Computed example of a mutant assay.
Amino acid sequence: MTSQTQLRQWGRNVIDIEKKALENLYQYVDSDAFGQACELILQCKGKVVVMGMGKSGHIGNKISATFASTGTPAFFVHPGEASHGDLGALSKNDVVMAISNSGESSEILTLMPVIQRMGVPVIAVTGKPESNMAKLAKLHLCIKVPEEACPLGLAPTSSTTATLVMGDALAVALLQSRGFTRDDFALSHPGGSLGKKLLLKVDDVMHKDERLPLVKQNITITDALYEITKKGLGMAGVVDDSNKLVGIFTDGDLRRVIDAQVNLRDTSIAQVMTPNCVTIQAGILAAQALQVMDDKNINGLIVVDGQHQPIGALNMLDMVKAGVI
């Protein structure tokens, strides 16, 4: 039976070999071809159509997805399916990125005459500059690696890693060239926690109007508890006669009051509230409000306007429901 030590060593060997493959990639990113490929894609009025067979196809799928989410319109077309109708998705305004480590993928080479007839430029990404794909393409990006991490030299390992990193290098270079921002990124990621963190504002999450728990500072703790229970946020903002926020009373404050054996029916909320409480302004990202709660180690916040009058409230559960956490 193979020892744990041997298994770990084999794993480390793979990492070492692939690290060398990535270091070898610098020379290809530093080449004129990399800059020319970026310029060609930036000038493209259509989309980047990525193609690849087998493992190259899996990597190509990821590259096209990264392009699309970072400001470069792109999609993946399977070369085998392209020969049977899917090539109709290609337009004369597009750019093709064809991926094949050997540069001799027959499925892609079969498509090259048609693509060239359409006048669509091809960027070939291969490990062999002398390959047919490299020679037929308008531009060639080399991803040649010293060796595969597979000890048999057969399974694509280092080569697929290098291809993936080359795709990321292109995507990020294009992103920066376009001046692509966090807001732009958010627009292509409206679903999921990432989109929520980048798009959702406090105004979208907070309880307001009749759902906003507020009490006057001169009422008793018992009366304040009715409001807290009714609104279900575990807290209430305390306001003065001009409706300005003067404090907050939470479930945590209630526990401290009970421990101190304070008379709930006779004591005013102003005597036991937390004055000068942490507040936030409307319009900020919900993720920023979450950060405030984390930093201050609190579970809820009152949202105030420019006159320090409360206009909303939210707690950690609201963040969970909204998908910000």
Rank of each mutant, 00 (worst) to 15 (best):
L245C: 07
T160N: 11
G234N: 03
T161E: 11
G247Q: 04
D223L: 13
L212S: 06
M166P: 01
E227F: 06
D240H: 10
P156R: 07
G232H: 11
D240R: 03
G237M: 09
A224Q: 03
L233A: 03
L200Y: 04
A173F: 11
E210L: 01
T157L: 12
H207Q: 01
T157N: 02
D253C: 03
G179F: 02
K135F: 13
K197F: 12
G167H: 11
V202P: 08
E227A: 04
Q217P: 04
Y226I: 15
A171E: 08
D240T: 09
G153I: 04
S188D: 00
P213V: 00
L141K: 03
L141C: 02
C150K: 07
E147G: 00
L170A: 08
G179A: 13
S159C: 14
F180A: 00
D240K: 07
A224M: 10
K196M: 11
V239N: 07
S158P: 05
V165A: 15
P213M: 07
S158G: 00
G167E: 12
G191W: 10
G167W: 10
K197Y: 07
P190I: 14
A169K: 09
E148A: 03
L200W: 06
L225V: 06
K196S: 10
L174A: 02
P151M: 13
V215R: 05
R255N: 08
I248R: 03
T160A: 14
D203M: 06
H140A: 05
C150I: 07
V165T: 12
S242C: 07
D203T: 03
S158V: 06
R211M: 12
T220M: 10
F185K: 06
L174E: 01
K135W: 07
L254W: 08
I221W: 10
M206N: 00
K216L: 09
G247T: 02
L233N: 00
V215H: 02
A173T: 15
G192C: 12
T181W: 15
E147R: 09
A155T: 05
L174H: 01
L174K: 06
N243P: 04
L194Y: 08
R182Y: 05
A155L: 13
L152G: 03
A186I: 14
I221C: 14
S242D: 15
P156Q: 11
H189I: 03
D183M: 14
C142D: 13
S159M: 08
T161W: 15
K216M: 13
A236R: 01
K197Q: 14
V165S: 13
S159G: 01
K201W: 00
D168G: 06
Q217R: 09
L214T: 01
K216Q: 13
V239C: 08
T250Y: 01
A162T: 08
T181G: 09
L199K: 13
P146A: 14
M206V: 01
H207L: 12
G192A: 06
L174W: 11
G247F: 06
L194V: 03
K144F: 09
T160V: 15
S177W: 11
I143K: 01
